[in-house]
Design a protein around this nucleic acid. Structure first.
Lengths: 125, 125
DNA sequence: CTCTTTCGTTTACAGATGTAAACTGATTAC
DNA sequence: GTAATCAGTTTACATCTGTAAACGAAAGAG
């Protein structure tokens, strides 16, 4: 199951604010993305159909919840990105991101720690 | 201009082996991707139309060349991936890739060097 | 010179995507 | 209780994608 660009916007909101009903999603996304309410309703509907969201009636409205875990979707999307753009090799991707990104000192430190933890200074691991 | 999944396969080949003619592309891609010659011809055609490739007649066949630089496409695709999946923040993306990837010691070392060069140990840069 | 093969162009077609209006059933305001 | 409103469902529609067949021109086979 593929989550499209626009659907990621919706999913990202829902992962961060579930359970949530349609009006909330519309309220939070229509302005910043210049989407009509109808567009957002369509996306919610499609995401339910795809199995990415579940909805549960609460009176006349529906409460939406993610059925797929963000982490799994991130993994899938990352895999697909790596495959398509870097032939599946993480190293060039990491180098590219590192070269083109501004990181805060804290973020850099965290990265360095993880790097050291997983791939120790002397031997790789 | 967007390069689709399948088109990336073609572009990746061409970036690595240009100039190249259609029969070569077909020869190199149809087996591993299980694509018919017609499919590959379509993709070449679309890529020319999109402006990603140029073609130049050489007798009855065409020689293809990339018109867009790989680096630019990588940057665009990375940007789009970051935006869609990580809300535009490189740090979580880097952490994710690092957590889910196996790197060789050399790759790890290269990353560490770049990290240190760009975001020195004491002060961020 | 015809027939066949080859190469590129056009056309095809279903499914995904972005974007949204139309429709329908329930609910709230009079 | 009838009108306006609101939520969700259906329908719409152009474009993009993946996948490929059909078609037309050129070139080589005989």
């Amino acid at each position: 199951m593929q989550i499209s660009d626009a659907e990621w916007v919706v999913m990202n909101l829902i992962w961060g604010s579930q359970p949530i009903d349609a009006s909330q999603v519309i309220e939070r996304l229509s302005e910043p993305h210049d989407w009509s309410a109808a567009t957002i309703k369509t996306m919610l509907h499609r995401l339910v159909r795809k199995g990415a969201l579940s909805h549960e009636a609460d009176g006349r409205k529906y409460i939406y919840r993610a059925k797929v875990r963000r982490h799994d979707c991130v993994r899938k999307a990352s895999r697909s990105f790596l495959d398509r753009v870097f032939g599946g090799n993480a190293a060039p991707a990491l180098l590219h991101l590192l070269k083109t990104s501004r990181l805060s000192p804290d973020e850099a430190a965290e990265l360095r720690e993880l790097l050291d933890a997983r791939f120790g200074d002397e031997q790789g691991g």
